[in-house]
Each structure stands twice: as C-alpha cells, then as structure tokens.
Simulated scan of single mutants.
Amino acid sequence: MPQLDPATNIILIGMPGSGKSTVGVLLAKRLGMGFVDTDLLIQEKAGRTLQEIVDQDGYQALRHTEEAVLLDLKVQHQIISTGGSAVYSAAAMQHLKANGVAVFLDIPLKRVIERIGDHSARGISRRPDQSLGELFEERYQLYCQYADLTVAGEGRNQDEVCDAVVKGLGSLPVR
C-alpha cells in the first residue's frame, strides 16, 4: 500500500478517455478513499452539461468555471478525477497539489480517439479551430509538468492501470 498521509488526495490528470473517472472509482475502493469527479461538480455549479457550457458560452467559460470549482475544492483523503483541462490553471493545480499527489494517466492519441469517438459532444475545452491532435500535444506538456507520477495506460485494462497507480504511489516519497 502507498505510504500517503491520511489527509493526502490523489489527483488524476489526463486526456478525456484516459480512464480518470473509471480508474478513480477503482482506486477509491482499493485504497478506502472517497471519490470526487470534478466534471460533475462543474455541471452542478453551472446547472448545465459541460457541452452546453462550451456551446453556449465558449471553451474559455468552461475553463473559468473549472478553475473556480477546483480552487473551491477543500477535501482530504479523496481520489479526485479532474477534467482534462484542469492543467490550464496553474493556480488550481497548485491548490490541488498542496494537499495531493498528481497522477497522469497517459494514453496515446489513437487511444483517446478510439475511446471518446465523436469528441464534439464531450464538452471538451478546446479552441474551435483546434484539432484533437493539436489539443493532445498542447496538454501533454502540461500533464507531464504537473505529474508526480505518470502511469502508462496503453496495453492495460482499467484494473491493471489501477494496480500500476497503487504500485507507483508506493514508490513515491512519503507525503
């Protein structure tokens, strides 16, 4: 088992389709922690789906709402599944990492495309002229920058990714 302080959160970051929500629930069960899906908190705060926010107010509005939700989040001993664009807010990531370990669930672009299909209905925060490939390249650098631990998802099912996260957390210094 990982040597985490009981108050420490595990923050999952990565592209849509990387398994943050699914692996997050598995991790919460395995480690006896709570689970928070920030996409759901954003929808609750806005009273709309992520896609409705993007369609009606633009991708920047989604990022702004996401940042506000993340900065308001004050939890302990939780698995936090963030939206794919959480890493655009340095302030939000600093806030989350002050009491948590960031785990990047890394999958290749081809897997993202396979898993999310028609991304136009996913509420993905991207410029209207930006391809999924361009978005992937832009975000990849940010995920790497904020990650305390990177776990490759390629060739692994959700349980195997969960196992790899637990093993990886065990190799980190006590937090």
Rank of each mutant, 00 (worst) to 15 (best):
L109H: 15
T65H: 03
A28N: 08
H95W: 10
V54A: 01
V101W: 10
Q60K: 13
L70T: 09
I53P: 01
S89D: 08
G83T: 04
I42D: 01
K97M: 15
V23R: 11
K45V: 06
L70G: 04
E67L: 05
L50W: 08
D72I: 06
T38D: 01
A91R: 12
E114I: 01
T65M: 14
T65S: 06
V87F: 11
A86S: 07
Q76R: 14
P108K: 13
D37V: 02
T65L: 07
G58Q: 00
D72L: 03
L96S: 09
L105F: 03
F35P: 09
K74S: 14
I79H: 14
Q76D: 12
V112I: 14
L62W: 07
H77I: 05
L109P: 09
A90H: 13
M93F: 02
L40P: 02
I107H: 08
S89K: 04
Q94N: 14
L70V: 07
I107W: 05
G34Q: 11
G47S: 07
L41K: 12
V23L: 07
Q94V: 14
A46Q: 05
T82R: 00
I79C: 12
M33H: 01
L109R: 11
E67S: 13
A61G: 03
G24D: 09
V101M: 10
I80G: 02
A91F: 07
V36A: 05
V112H: 08
L40E: 15
I79T: 12
K45I: 03
Q78D: 10
I116W: 02
G34N: 14
L73M: 12
P108S: 08
D39I: 10
K97V: 13
V23K: 10
G83F: 00
A28H: 10
G58P: 01
A102T: 05
A86G: 04
D57I: 00
T49R: 02
V25W: 03
D55S: 09
E44V: 04
T49C: 04
G100R: 06
D55K: 01
R30W: 06
K29R: 15
A102R: 10
Q51E: 11
